[in-house]
Design a protein around this nucleic acid. Structure first.
Length: 419
RNA sequence: GUGGUCGUAGCUCAGUUGGUUAGAGCAUCAGGUUGUGAUCCUGAGGGUCGGGGGUUCGAAUCCCCUCGAUCACCCCA
């Protein structure tokens, strides 16, 4: 009576072929790109001490209301990671590898939000971080890494937005100027933005609410407040991108959701996406975060790309089709013996992708299965073949079927794939 | 968390103003004589119409609740 039926929780889903193959291929493409650039992989745990993540900014939504926090049996407060950067910084502080420490990662992150298109509670990211250098050339190298990755997978409708948020030192003056500007025009600011203003004036710039736009346009720009060092670094980043031919757009109002950013910030926006979630990736510098997590005062810079959103953007361009993991050879066997088992094992050891059917189905049914599997070749073993020590090799296109000795099977099958 | 739309077979959907055993296409399975796929023909299986309650002689159809999906706001990958 009480018929139980379970399904995936809101914001989570099962990835089945071919979607799962496609995602894995995307991650592999990123891994290849990152490792070519000298990044090594880090695999941090999916949950950490709660404090690791609350350092991301007490005022951010990610920490305030989206964290999957819980306690272990001993009452230790912990949380599922909402992103990787904090874990990477923690890992640096814990292990103190040589700097600059270049590392890449891939895996799921968790945020408790209302799901919608391109937004899941468990979502996958790939990303890269560098700890231990102030060199703006690393900012460039990271942006270029993301950019080359997009090129590699065939994503073209993508815009790189670039900004700098200056150093911690000049931030107060800028924040004060922003406060003054918005306070002077409080009436024309939306209610939401007024709330945001009280918490973090920077993020008011991020509002997409139409009534706020004129005021945001008129707001003071961080570029006018930069220290000489920060300004020089920003120039170096832009020049570097120019040199590599990476197109970007300076977006003075680009602020990002996490509070830890300093200097360079950037975001990749999918222009082909009609969804509200058009940010497919983003990152920036976070000088000070490592120290916040109990490490030495080492600077850091990095980015994360949303795997699902990248895939969505690729969909919009009909690019990056699912990888082919279908069998090449299908074994049809009606003897009831072990012939199919042995033959498919042999072909697999020879490096071929091989499948067969089970449950002793009729030859007709097995041939249908062979056809449906999209294998190029069927190998048929019936009582006659078994008796004569032969197999029948039937290409599943127009080529003719032929018979060959059982001992030559693997060789003859492989020949089918040479042309 | 707030709001809009939606929820009928594995998939895509149809179901007229509430009226008899809820349909189609695709898919699946089995046949179309002796061991051979994609086409074609025939047939079969498969749904407590998301779940619960209510109105009614009668509900997939009307009302309420609930769960889920989806889109948007917020925020972000």
């Amino acid at each position: 009576m009480a018929r139980v039926s379970f399904q995936t929780l809101p914001g989570t889903r099962d990835l089945l072929p071919p979607a799962s193959d496609r995602m894995r291929a995307l991650v592999q493409a990123f891994a290849a790109e990152a490792e070519q650039a000298g990044f090594g992989q880090i695999v941090p745990p999916m949950f950490e001490d709660l404090g690791v993540f609350t350092r991301l900014g007490e005022a951010t939504d990610v920490v305030k209301k989206e964290l999957y926090a819980f306690e272990d049996m001993g009452g230790r407060k912990q949380a599922l990671r909402p992103e990787f950067t904090a874990s990477v910084c923690r890992a640096y502080a814990q292990h103190r590898p040589l700097t600059p420490w270049k590392t890449w990662y891939a895996g799921p992150a968790f945020r408790q939000e209302k799901p919608q298109k391109g937004r899941y509670r468990q979502f996958d990211q790939v990303g890269a971080e560098v700890i231990g250098s102030h060199d703006p050339d690393l900012d460039v190298e990271l942006i270029a890494l993301a950019w080359r990755f997009y090129q590699r997978v065939g994503l073209t409708n993508i815009t790189l937005l670039l900004n700098t948020l200056g150093d911690k030192a000049e931030r107060p003056a800028y924040l004060a100027a922003l406060q003054d500007h918005f306070n002077a025009n409080l009436d024309s600011l939306s209610e939401k933005s007024r709330e945001t203003l009280a918490i973090n004036p920077l993020r008011v710039l991020d509002s997409k609410r139409p009534p706020d736009q004129p005021l945001i346009e008129a707001a003071p720009k961080i570029l006018d407040f930069l220290s000489e060092d920060a300004a020089k670094a920003f120039e170096r980043v832009k020049a570097g991108l120019d040199t590599l031919g990476v197109a970007y757009e300076v977006a003075p109002r680009l602020v990002r959701g996490l509070d830890y950013y300093t200097r360079t910030t950037f975001e990749f926006v999918g222009s082909g996406l009609d969804a509200a979630q058009n940010a497919v990736g983003g990152g920036g510098r976070y000088d000070g975060l490592v120290a916040d997590l109990g490490g030495p005062d080492e600077p850091g810079v990095g980015f994360a790309l949303g795997v699902d959103r990248t895939l969505l953007a690729l969909d919009a361009e009909d690019a990056f089709p699912a990888a082919d993991c279908q069998p090449q050879v299908f074994l049809v066997c009606t003897t009831g013996g072990f012939e199919a088992m042995v033959a498919s094992d042999e072909l697999r050891r020879a490096g071929l992708r091989v499948d067969r059917s089970f449950d002793h189905r009729s030859m007709k049914a097995q041939m249908k299965a062979a056809n449906r599997s999209n294998a190029q070749v069927a190998v048929i073993i019936g009582p006659d073949e078994a008796e004569n020590g032969t197999v029948s090799i039937r290409p599943l296109d127009d080529r003719p079927q032929f018979s060959t000795g059982r001992s030559e099977m693997t060789e003859k099958v492989k020949e089918q794939f040479l042309s």
